[in-house]
Amino acid sequence: MAKLYLNQSPNKKVENLEPRKETIAFLLNYSKALNVVETKNKKTFETILN
């Protein structure tokens, strides 16, 4: 056989990482601000409250 290719996988070690505090704060604030309204014909509207 002419040539065999090696199966090269990215052998990078993944440390235990965590999201930034700002990201978590954004998500919690987004959740608090998000308001979903359901209309009579079962359609939903999303509003972001300040």
Binding site: T23, F26, L27, Y30, S31, V36, E46
Partner: peptide, 27 residues
């Protein structure tokens, strides 16, 4: 992170993931 190997992209995808979670749950 194990898929994208980039902190900033990981942060964005993590945020988008939970935005989807929040919207689905609230709906």
């Amino acid at each position: 992170f194990s898929k994208v190997f980039d902190r900033d992209i990981t942060e964005d995808i993590f945020q988008d993931t939970f935005i989807k979670v929040i919207r689905t749950l609230k709906r």
